[in-house]
Each structure stands twice: as C-alpha cells, then as structure tokens.
C-alpha cells in the first residue's frame, strides 16, 4: 500500500510531467531552497567528521602507544600514552547488556499496548512510556546510583553465586556495585522508552485487514502476531532496536555517574570498573590539557564512526528485508 502511494507521489513530483519543459521561476527557487535544506544535512554530517578529524590529529600524532589497543589513558603525560581499547570494550559490553534486555521487553510493552491492553489504557501507558524518554539522563544516573543499584546488587551476587562458573560472572573483588552490568541495566531502562515507542508506532500501522484475516482463519493471538504483525513490522522493529542502540552507545552522564571508571579491560562484568567513550569524555574533559582535549575528541570521533556504522548496517538490513517482506 505504501509502495503504491510512493509511486504516484513520485510521478506527481516529477515537474516535467506536469507543465512540460517550462518550470516556473517560483518552483525553481522553492526546489532550490528545499534541496538546499536537504544538502545541509549532508554538509553538517561531513563537517562533523571533518572537524573531529582535524582536532583529533594533533593528539594522534604524539600518541606513543597504539590508539586502538592501548589500555591506559594518559594523553597529557610526556610521552603521551592513550588508547581506546577500554572505552570500546566498555561501550560494547554495556550496549549489548542494554539491548539484550531492552529489545525483548520493549517489543513486549509495545505488543501489550497495541494488542493486549484496552485502547484507552494502552494510550495512557504509551504516554507514560513516552514521558520517560524526556527524563534527563543525569536523573537516571542519580536514581540508578542511589535507588536502583542497591536494589539489584543481590541479583548480581546471585549471578556470581550460581553462574560464577561462566567466566564473565566470576567476581574476585567481592564487590558487585558500579559495574558494567549495572550500567548496562540502567541503560536498558533508559533505552526502553525509545525501543517501545517506535515499535509501538510500527505495530499500530499493521493493516487491520491482515490482523482480521489471520484471526478469521482461526489463528490464536500469538499466531496472529507471529504471522501478520512481525513480517509486516520487522524493518520498523529493527530500526527501533537500532535507535535504542544508538542511544545506549552515546549515553554520557548516567554512565559516567554509575561506572567506577578505570582503564583496564575487565571481563568480569559484575565487578566495579569499566568505562565508555561518552562517559570518559565527560569525566576527563574539565581537567584535560591541550593534548588531552584532542585525545578526547579523537575518542569522540571513534564513537561517531561506530554509530555511523551501526546505522548504516540497520539501513542495509531494513532495505534487504523490505524486498522479501510479504506485507508489501
């Protein structure tokens, strides 16, 4: 259905098809203006990359360690030593934990609101969930640190006690707070509104006819969701997850407050420690010297490139899925 509208929109949008070769001056300037706005987006993206590269180069030139594998961060020392290994590891681990939890639960809430709750109740719930997307991340951080973390420390201890034979859950320090796991859990709560709000919108767009048809054929509600809803909304669900991932990767202040930031790759995710790109920038920015500042910009550039790659992959998956989707 949406494809056919696109087609007609395209033909209607073709100026040549309407008034022959004569494009009026008003049209031309309006086209120029709107195209300019579009090109501005490309220009801004290019400028972000260009300026970050430009300001990152001075530190990369004096870095005496391998920028990708070095585990310490002492850029203002002479000789300057810094690398992103710890930041990349921490960012990756917290984002994975957040996504493992937030994606299924986010889809669950969205399904609940769209197909299980009464419409009015569902709308009110959607509103509350949307509202949480607006809670400033520093508040999530404080709440995570003083309210949430004490309450779930026992969960982390349980993980170590019963699953400690899995290396990542082992805990040699006998401390279960301020860990990558905690940061990941708080991030999960933070990205939940993003994931559920977008997937809810997608679920609500599933054509009524598909739903009714499958129910009429005797499908249970779950079969209807599996057979009518998921195939139609898969691209949207993926983009919801990816947007959530984007937020998890770039979250700054909550992570800075919760993690006990250290420069050491520690695979024991329940122990205090860990770090992330964004949190490290917030923690080091104020006291950083000239090289330090430039090094932080370099790490910001890497974060930018990672989010770029994530979004490109998401786009690619969606484009591929669309071709096979039965709904279209």
């Amino acid at each position: 259905m949406s494809t056919s509208t696109d087609e007609t929109a395209k033909s209607a949008a073709d100026p040549a098809g309407i008034s022959g070769a004569a494009i009026r001056a008003g049209d031309r300037s309006f086209l120029g203006l709107s195209r300019g706005a579009g090109i501005l987006v490309l220009a801004v993206m290019a400028a972000i990359a260009a300026f970050l590269v430009w300001k990152a180069i001075p530190s990369l030139q004096v870095d005496s360690a391998n920028f990708l594998t070095e585990q310490s961060w002492l850029p203002d020392q002479t000789p300057s030593v810094f690398g992103i290994a710890v930041l990349a590891f921490g960012t990756f681990v917290t984002a994975v934990i957040a996504m493992l939890i937030a994606v299924p639960i986010g889809f669950g809430i969205a399904l609940f609101i769209a197909y299980y709750a009464r419409p009015k109740f569902g709308k009110a719930l959607g509103f509350i969930v949307d509202l949480l997307a607006a809670v400033p991340s520093i508040i999530f951080g404080l709440w995570g640190l003083y309210n949430f973390m004490p309450a779930v420390t026992s969960f982390a201890e349980w993980l170590t006690e019963y699953l400690g034979w899995i290396p990542i859950f082992a805990n040699d320090k006998q401390l279960w707070t301020k860990s990558l796991l905690m940061a990941g859990l708080v991030l999960a709560i933070m990205v939940l509104p993003t994931v559920s709000a977008i997937s809810r919108e997608v679920f609500l767009q599933v054509p009524r006819m598909h739903i009714e048809a499958s129910l009429a054929l005797g499908a249970t509600r779950w079969e209807m969701i599996k057979m009518a809803v998921f195939p139609f909304s898969r691209p949207g669900m993926i983009s919801a997850a990816m947007l959530g991932l984007g937020r998890a990767l770039g979250e700054t202040i909550a992570v800075a407050l919760i993690l006990s930031a250290v420069f050491e790759v520690n695979t024991h995710i329940t122990e205090p420690g860990g770090n992330s790109f964004a949190a490290n920038i917030a923690l080091k920015w104020g006291e950083a010297g000239e090289v330090g500042r430039s090094a932080l910009i370099a790490s910001g550039l890497v974060l930018f490139l990672i989010t770029l790659a994530v979004n490109m992959i998401a786009r690619w998956i969606i484009a591929r899925r669309k071709e096979f989707s039965g709904a279209n």
């Binding site: 801004v44 984007g246 990767l249 700054t252 974060l303």
Partner: peptide
C-alpha cells in the same frame, strides 16, 4: 538523515 538521528548528543 537516518544516520544523523543516531549522532550521540556528546558528539
């Protein structure tokens, strides 16, 4: 535009 939606706020 899609990619820009994912630009982290600190960046």
């Amino acid at each position: 535009v899609d990619v820009m939606t994912g630009v982290p706020s600190i960046v």
